[in-house]
Amino acid sequence: MRLLSDSIGRKVVMAITGLLMVLFVVGHLLGNLSIFAGPNGINAYAEKLHGLPQVVWATRVVMLTAVALHIVLSIRLTLENRAAKPTAYAVDRRLRVTFAGKNMIWTGLLLGGFIAFHLLHFTVRSVPGLDIVQGLDGHGRFDVFSMVVAAFGHVVTAVVYVVAMAALFLHLSHGIQSTFQSLGLNNAKTMPGFLKFGSVLSVIFLLGYGSIPVAIFFGLIAK
């Protein structure tokens, strides 16, 4: 039996890496929401976080590995699955397949691209053609708040982030419940709960993450 080449082994890897990413997304959201507390909130949070480089780097290594595995396996799975179903039916009628489920590969690839952009944007802080506001706040901390507020003041950037969060919502509305199925935790009793859990969590992500660019763009968060 092999984890990375047996069909279900790969599902398990997809599920575990997916769950890791969901956990990260939860933590990241909690951190990001500190922006609603103003410059003091998010700047203090950022400084505290970067005071723990081991944690930050360990997280980065684990997450990048997870992302890489998740992407590589998903592309392989998708190609295999297309080969296993070479011909579509003349009438496209589905009983259970959802839009989100059907488009996992696309929302996933979009998110992959977004993660790369997001890292360049706010972590590496170097995107060709994009002016990134960088400086220190009154307490001598890196001013995350001003950087983010300035970035989302631009309509294009705000839209990019909102679209990405919509993709995240779609991806996770199928993906979260799917991990429980792949890990074999579903049964008749738990399944409805996991389905609901996945939907609720992905809505929370959509609202939580989406609210930041929207609030900034409409001036609800401003200097």
């Binding site: 199925q181 074999g184 935790l185």
Partner: peptide, 16 residues
């Protein structure tokens, strides 16, 4: 029901 697929996944993971 697809709960039996979950069972298959569980049996696989356990065996692995």
């Amino acid at each position: 029901k697809v709960k039996f697929i979950a069972r298959l996944n569980r049996e696989f993971t356990k065996a692995l």
